[in-house]
Design a protein around this nucleic acid. Structure first.
Lengths: 114, 114
DNA sequence: CGGGTATATACCTATTAAGGTATATAAAGC
DNA sequence: GCTTTATATACCTTAATAGGTATATACCCG
């Protein structure tokens, strides 16, 4: 499966997701609320749907797209490992302790090249 | 500036950042801890540095790379708009209320094509 | 059924970006 | 000074992807 990040790398897709964050929308709605052409919107929605970021329901000729949060949660989860860098003050201690135990002896002879 | 997401789209770069999350490392350290070639590591570090995700200090021939959290915080901030989808139960109410006020009248005549 | 509306897709082209190999730069230490 | 170590960069080739235009599909309504 495509990584969540590679899907989100595309600015138009992020814009679409931001719009869908507030409520579901049709392709036409999205066309009006972005500067994108209709085929472009449809193609991005296809990518987002295949990747599990959105789902659609049929309303006559329209397709109503809405957000599916799981893939975005993945990103949130990946970020967890870095959050102590900005979350709380106490965590500065954690980082300090880790520096005490780095993988770099920082002096003396070195490893060898293959 | 390149979007944080496009930088993170590359799996090797995410791996490098994950390693740096625990402590700073030299290029050689990273080479040993990943399956990447040295030029590949250097090139990814270059991208990460230019994008502000890491910084380096000189230690003789070595360069010691460490994390700079700001760009990752950007991602965290962008995610904020979606967090109510998975954070608390109360937020389900929010979403429900928004659905009451969608941009789709969902019946009757339509807009015109240019 | 026919015309207009809504969305999806095919095809083409251009750009970007990644990996590989080779090489350049620079410092270490004898 | 020469050799080894550490990292950066150049060049090449290949693959992925985005946007555009044109067209297909499907539904609505009179």
């Amino acid at each position: 499966m495509e990584s969540a990040f590679s899907i989100l790398a595309e600015p138009s897709r992020r814009a679409i997701l931001s719009l869908l964050a507030s409520s579901e929308r049709s392709v036409g709605d999205l066309e009006l609320e972005t500067h994108l052409s209709q085929p472009s919107i449809s193609k991005h929605l296809r990518v987002l749907r295949d990747a599990g970021f959105v789902e659609a329901t049929v309303d006559a000729q329209r397709r109503l797209y809405r957000l599916k949060p799981q893939r975005l949660q993945e990103v949130d989860a990946w970020l967890a490992q870095f959050r102590r860098y900005w979350s709380a003050r106490v965590d500065a201690l954690e980082r300090h302790l880790e520096r005490m135990d780095e993988p770099n002896p920082r002096k003396k002879k070195t490893r060898k090249r293959k």
